[in-house]
Amino acid sequence: MGFFFETLIGGLMAGMLYSLVALGFVLIFKASGVFNFAQGAMVLFAALAMARLSVWIPECLGIDGRVLGNTLAFVVAGALMFVVAWLVERFVLRHLVNQEGATLLMATLGVAYVLEGVGTSVFGTEVYKIDVGMPKDPVLILEGSFEGGLLINKEDFVAALVAALLVALLALFFQKTSTGRALRAVADDHQAAQSIGIPLGRIWVIVWFVAGLVALVAGIIWGSKLGVQFSLATVALRALPVVILGGLTSVPGAIIGGLIIGVGEKLSEVYLGPYIGGGIEIWFSYQLALVFLLFRPQGLFGEKIIDRV
């Protein structure tokens, strides 16, 4: 029983990372109708920037406090993500207004190539560790209820807390600020939003920037757990079933979808894997998404605006 719960919690943690990536997808899709394949490259780019800057900045300025160094690196990496957002709006999205979905999708793939190329040529290709001082030691909990108790990383708890905080902040931003209201207006109807004077271009920059920040947080959590490496760019493909499951337009859907996919992957790998050969993680989530597409195409929480045939 203890093993089952440990697998479950491991799945929840992996799912949380998927949720954060999926969140970036959903934000951009809601605001601009773009299916952003570059989200994985953005996570990679942000994580690389964070990993290198947290070394470079203290070296250059001669600071040796880890907290100060990391904070500065976070701010600079955030600023970089803003530059990326601005460049994408200025040079890509602005010229592709009203194009078909497939064209926009291909354009974001182009953006992904550029981000991967720039990221690896500026920051290098080795595997980097991000050290933001998360507690590493595992703890045993619930020793009374199970034999042997449950072994859990404190790090995972901190990461979950950060993710929850981020989602809460985003919810506040969307519901309570005027920019958030403008974002929701754009998501509802581009033309109506534009006709009452909401600048579409600026909204796109903001929403790509927010998605960039989410990517940065996802990159930091991932990086401090598993190290930053090139394979991070493929995480976008892992997060796609998540958005289908949760619904393309739903922020809570992205979170819950991510958790379901994470848990489903881990449990299926552990309990189903031995019977049909290992490594089923990657397609299990896609088959789950396929079932959802056939029977409930709008996902768990999505709006029913999907192109039904």
Binding site: I280, I282, L290, L293, P297, I306, D307, V309
Partner: peptide, 24 residues
């Protein structure tokens, strides 16, 4: 078969399912 139910980007995800399944 999914194309009879969904289209556009949703269909793209359904075909990705084919990709990962055959890879495996």
């Amino acid at each position: 078969i999914p194309s009879l139910r969904v289209r556009g980007l949703y269909l793209a995800v359904a075909t990705l399912a084919a990709q990962f399944l055959t890879d495996w």
